[in-house]
């Protein structure tokens, strides 16, 4: 109890008044801009300086020949569906490949120590600190030569670059938490390597692997620059579709609708991943 009292002087468990206000401000800063975005997507006419639209999309819907706002967003003209399918397909392929090449490496990194390990870990983190534009344009030149530009293969390959460091970090954390006792038990009891992997290691790894996979999928779906450069306008994903809608620097109702559609996968993944992803995995320092 004495310790609690001492804490109260300089160290509180509760929020200070400043922190309360600050949390509200941050929440407003993060979520606030979505309010006009949602309104804009339902607006038909929203002239300056009205704070709310004077005509809503639904009122004009019957009168119009051309599809408006949400009609447009869900119609094939907007390419939203095509972009969503591409995004999901590329994300899944990247996740599977990334998982396959990172699992064995993460196992070694979590359990073995070898000469030059810190340097090696730094090498694996490199993609996070090399400017995307540099790597993207340089790779594009090569990919054009070998015919991979504008193909799914090309995009999937470049998506591996920013996803590998995260996958390695998350899987290494999983292996570190696992310990090797159970595997050794199984080995003593005469299980083969394959049996150990299939019946002991994999079931215990599964939650962590799911977390790593979800996060990799997320990173892949959010990549703009590498997809934009490699896709050559032939393959569109949700971020590049949105880019082409707002590249002029204005935002009409249909662009607002597409922005909201692009936000949806993030919200779904946020709700799903929060349970799986250990926040500790992000606290790992850089090359130390």
């Amino acid at each position: 109890m004495a310790r609690r009292n001492a804490n109260a002087t300089a160290l509180s468990e509760r929020l200070s008044p400043f922190q309360k206000v600050y949390l509200w401000l941050v929440a407003g800063f993060i979520l606030g801009p979505f309010i006009p975005l949602i309104i804009q997507s339902f607006a038909f006419r929203w002239a300056w300086p009205d704070l709310l639209p004077s005509t809503w999309w639904l009122e004009q819907r019957e009168k119009s020949v051309l599809p408006l706002s949400w009609d447009y967003v869900i119609s094939p003209y907007s390419q939203v569906w095509e972009a969503t399918l591409n995004t999901v397909f590329i994300g899944c392929a990247v996740t599977v490949i990334c998982l396959i090449i990172c699992l064995p490496a993460a196992r070694v990194l979590a359990r073995e120590s070898f000469r030059g390990k810190p340097a090696f870990e730094f090498f694996l983190s490199m993609p996070l600190i090399v400017p995307e534009a540099a790597i993207g344009i340089a790779l594009l030149m090569i990919f054009i030569q070998i015919g991979l530009a504008g193909t799914y293969t090309g995009i999937i390959i470049v998506h591996l670059i920013p996803t590998i460091p995260y996958m390695i970090r998350m899987l290494t954390a999983v292996y570190q938490g696992l310990g090797r006792d159970f595997e050794e038990q199984a080995m003593i009891l005469g299980a083969s390597r394959w049996q150990i992997l299939r019946m002991v290691t994999l079931p215990m790894l599964l939650p962590g692997v799911v977390a790593g996979a979800l996060f990799t999928f997320l990173v892949s779906t959010n990549i703009f620059l590498l997809t934009f450069f490699m896709g050559q306008g032939k393959i569109i994903t949700l971020p590049t579709l949105l880019f082409s809608k707002i590249a002029g620097g204005t935002l009409d109702a249909s662009a607002a609708g597409i922005t909201l559609v692009v936000t949806v996968p993030g919200i779904i993944l946020l709700v799903v991943t929060e349970r799986f992803i250990k926040e500790e995995a992000f606290g790992k320092g850089f090359g130390n």
Partner: peptide, 9 residues
Amino acid sequence: MIPYTVGIA
């Protein structure tokens, strides 16, 4: 969780 392009919009 969401792309930079959403932030730009």
